[in-house]
Write a protein that binds this DNA or RNA. Structure first.
Lengths: 233, 233
DNA sequence: CCAAAAGTGTTAAGGGTACACCCATGC
DNA sequence: GCATGGGTGTACCCTTAACACTTTTGG
């Protein structure tokens, strides 16, 4: 800590890091992207992508930078989750982690895959490996948050492509909420929001009736939200 | 930073602090407890009670410690709000703040008032003074959180005494949500949860029909929550 | 023509909302 | 007895929940 400025606070300081839970959806399951650690502690164990916060960036900027550095992801939807500060959560030294969660869609990930990044892998929520540090807990908190959020904010669309079918959307909601949803009621409700726009295009090469694609107008949603509109499941 | 241990992270670190938004209720308005700063920067300006996090405590422990040191408050309901990390939020140096919000009732505060604490004062939400740092923003975020939380978790009871009347409870909800609520519907709904227990005792010395006191069984609520019960407004 | 999933309406029940009068108490 | 706020019930509407058959497409 060499600095000329006078500190009003001269105590020892915890290190500050961010860890991000990256959610994805493969059409059937909600998944989390993990990286395999190359160093001790927890060498070879799986962990959330994360790292230390620099002096000239906010924690959110740090989380986004690390997402790109470690997983090659850009322009992702990211939101602060919770700050974990247990004194011994890292065996090396005191590290406080501001955790974020991110929602990415398959396309976004494809584009950036194969870059010069760490070894990463998607894991289904029920097939998570042993995790480093307190990352299992962080993921549990993130899942709870996602469940809560999905029913009153249209976050689900971040996990799908720009064009998606209603059955895809329903499967996603069922995966997040871990419960079956009635098809007709789901369609009625989601269409009644007026935020989904049917496209001409339909699925191709499927051995059954082709589903219509829809798009979600994020801009219109933001407009309506300002005017007091309230999305709900 | 003198330490013998080898650091895996040798960069400069932001200082880590907590700030807490303390909500109270005077029977008519929701209020926030502020302290007047004794030092620069922002000398004599009002600010949230807060301070730096020590190495051997979590941020929550720090927030609770500072609540006691600065406002004499013990055993308060406290919850993490959000972490504010804008690089220039403090003019002295980089300080990241993990913000909390607390709910205290008048009785709790009376008991601890007059201690050897800083100069503190309650301010109604619509009468807030100019605030130091980014504390006005932190309060806005806290109010939003409180509004959201109140409708699906029975947090309101933390702001009232152990015994309270339904009109008091309704006034509190109206103050938090900033909207009028129908008396009959409110009673119906709140009583239908089965979490409120009527007491024999009634109000005294009021120039109208005396209201009955009720109590809220926090223990039973926790039990029910585990069994999947879901409180709602 | 068969399999597989998309798409579509109606009904019954429950919860939410709106609304007006009588009651107890202190002065 | 009057002013003040506490306490109570009902009717309508809208939202939710349950439920089965027809359509399209590829093989």
């Amino acid at each position: 800590m060499k600095k000329e400025k006078k500190y009003t606070y001269d105590y020892e300081r915890p290190a500050l890091a961010t860890d991000t839970v990256i959610f994805g959806f493969d059409g059937a399951q909600v998944k989390v992207l993990l990286t395999q650690r190359e160093r001790e502690p927890f060498k070879n164990k799986w962990a959330l992508p994360g790292g230390f916060v620099f002096m000239e960036e906010t924690t959110e900027q740090a989380a986004k930078r690390l997402l790109q550095e470690k997983a090659g992801l850009r322009n992702v939807y990211i939101e602060q989750l919770y700050t974990f500060s247990e004194v011994d959560r890292d065996p090396r030294e005191r590290i406080v982690a501001v955790a974020y969660y991110a929602l990415v869609n398959a396309h976004q990930y494809e584009v950036s895959a194969g870059r010069d990044t760490l070894k990463t892998e998607w894991f289904g929520l029920s097939e998570l490996p042993k995790l480093a540090f307190d990352h299992a807990r962080i993921i549990r908190v993130a899942i709870e948050r996602l469940k809560g959020k999905v029913s009153y904010q249209p976050v689900g669309f971040e996990l799908l492509n720009e064009k998606f079918t209603l059955p895809q959307l329903q499967t996603l909601y069922e995966a997040i909420l871990e419960m079956p949803i009635d098809k007709r009621n789901f369609r009625k409700k989601i269409l009644s929001t007026g935020l989904l726009f049917p496209l001409e295009e339909k699925e191709k090469n499927v051995a059954h009736k082709a589903a219509r694609y829809y798009s979600f107008d994020k801009r219109m949603y933001k407009e309506l939200t300002k005017k007091g509109f309230h999305f709900e499941l």
